[in-house]
Amino acid sequence: MTPVIEVRALQKSFRHQRVLNNLNMTIDGGVVALLGPNGAGKTTLVSILTTLIRPDAGTARVLGHDVVRDASTVRSLVRVTGQATSLDELLTGRENLAMLGKLLGLGRTATNRADELLERLDLAAAGRKAVRTYSGGMRRRLDLAASLIAPAKVLILDEPTTGLDPVSRARVWDDIRQLAIDGTTVLLTTQTLDEAEALADRVTVLHRGGIVADGTVGELTALVGGQSVVLVDTAGSVLERVETDGTRASVAAALERMQRDNGARVELRSPSLEDAFAKLTQIEEVAA
């Protein structure tokens, strides 16, 4: 079966600085989170996959279509919501969606489709107002809706919830989950680990232009080793941490070493995706 996204030996530099370094990646479907610190190359990869920029070397294909040689087919298969909102401030939400629908070839059905979408995303009332009156969260959600106006095989979301309050973020997450259920392949870039943990079937960690890890959240956390025994005070601050290799004997030995006074308690902790991320990208872990 043709992979949904297939990237081979991809390279891209800007002003002699290598941003993507021999990148290989295969996505077969579902929700995939592309995780990486600032400057890891996430947005560059997204720009190549959406035909905005050309790679220096290597290939990228979407459902078998090359993003350089067959850019127009790729443009009909992939929709993207970038970091900057793409909405027209002077038009209403409904007009924005209908316009994009017409540009995608929906013709007269574009307006009906816009109404349907606004209804489904609970934006029907807002849809009649000019976008310049919208809050940040509404803009984001309408921008996401703009990518859904016509059916797409692949949806790429570049940091879809950056700058959103928790309530708006939860709503965007629900929208993304629904898309996955409907069969759209979603590739989302994110800097926040809980987003990857909450949404993704698979997490790909990008660091300095290459992929350093790829797997389910469980697989990635397993990569960083066993559990640790942590001494936590009543306020939740970590007083002491002893790493174990996960065996009964090593955990018992760790417990033995710990002081237990001042009301502190002992907890057994599995590594979180955050631990995995920190280790995989060699970032100094900040004490909790």
Binding site: D88, K102, L103, G105, P151, D182
Partner: peptide
């Protein structure tokens, strides 16, 4: 949400010009 997977076909240069003239 539709489950149809026929991808968008896009429009001709004349049609997109028309859409953008209306917008402007």
């Amino acid at each position: 949400m539709t489950t149809t997977t026929t991808p968008a076909t896009g429009v001709s240069t004349l049609s997109s010009s028309g859409v953008f003239i209306r917008r402007s």
